[in-house]
Amino acid sequence: MSTINKVAIVTGSAGGLGKAIALRLAHNGFSVMIHDINKDALTKTLQEFKDKGYDSDAFVGDVSKKSDQEKLVQTTVEKFGRLDVFVNNAGIEAVTPFIDIEEDELKKCFDINVFGTVFGTQAAAKQFIKQHSKGKIINACSIAGQESYTMLGTYSATKHAVWSLNMFQALYKIPGQQY
């Protein structure tokens, strides 16, 4: 493990792909703020990081709430002194057939997958500008962002939006982000 004095946030990192991303960053010497809405799973994951000797902390929050994303970045900077990488990983799948999806499920999927990505990107970019440094924003997408699948119509629509946000960030150079 090397010491590189970089700080990363990974949303939705109490388990699955987010946890794997956070573990790799920590293994590579990053200080990592792990994040999830599931407090119990997050507490267990944080203990695993601490047991490995990783410089880490945890933040319980809801990516679909702009104020939670702003507080996540603020808390990370208070704890570690800066922010270098923000990984928008949190997401949910909707596997209900398109014809049957209910309003609440549709809203929840867009709130987390799309609005969460927007709010995380905004919070990170504002911090990069504030600290006068460039940083990286990584938006986890899915092959469903490139193609649509019969049982994943709504999920595919949200991931198409995330893919489009990735293209927007690359084409229009969000201030403070390194390319």
Rank of each mutant, 00 (worst) to 15 (best):
K66R: 15
A161R: 03
G176V: 00
T154W: 06
F115K: 00
M1L: 13
A140C: 15
R82Y: 14
A124T: 06
K50I: 04
V95K: 03
F110S: 09
F128A: 12
G81M: 03
I4G: 13
F168I: 08
V85K: 00
M167D: 15
P97N: 00
K126G: 05
T154Y: 07
I9G: 08
T154Q: 06
G91A: 11
K19C: 04
V73K: 08
D57W: 14
A14S: 13
T150H: 10
F128P: 06
Y54R: 00
F80I: 01
I174C: 06
S164D: 10
D84K: 13
A22I: 03
S142T: 05
I4S: 12
I34G: 09
G176Q: 00
V87H: 08
M167W: 13
A125Q: 10
W163C: 15
K65V: 13
A170G: 14
I92D: 13
N113W: 14
R24D: 07
I9E: 08
N166V: 06
A125S: 11
L23F: 10
L46W: 11
G120A: 07
A41I: 00
V87F: 02
T45L: 05
S31T: 11
I99M: 15
I92A: 13
K159E: 03
Q127T: 10
A94Q: 04
I34A: 12
T11G: 04
D111W: 08
Q122S: 03
G91D: 00
L106N: 09
Q74E: 01
P97I: 02
K159S: 02
A58H: 14
F98T: 10
I34C: 10
Q146M: 07
E93Q: 14
T75L: 11
A161C: 00
K134E: 09
G145D: 04
Q177T: 05
V114A: 10
G81Y: 01
E105Q: 11
L17W: 04
I138N: 11
E70H: 04
E78D: 13
S156G: 05
L42P: 15
F110D: 12
K50L: 03
V77C: 02
A26K: 09
C109T: 15
F30V: 01
I4M: 12
A22H: 06
L25D: 04
S67M: 11
S31D: 12
D62N: 14
Y172H: 12
G120N: 07
Y172N: 14
T75K: 15
K65E: 11
V162M: 02
K159C: 01
H132G: 10
V87G: 05
E102H: 05
F98S: 06
N88D: 09
I37L: 08
S56K: 09
Y179M: 07
R82N: 14
T96L: 02
V95C: 02
E93P: 09
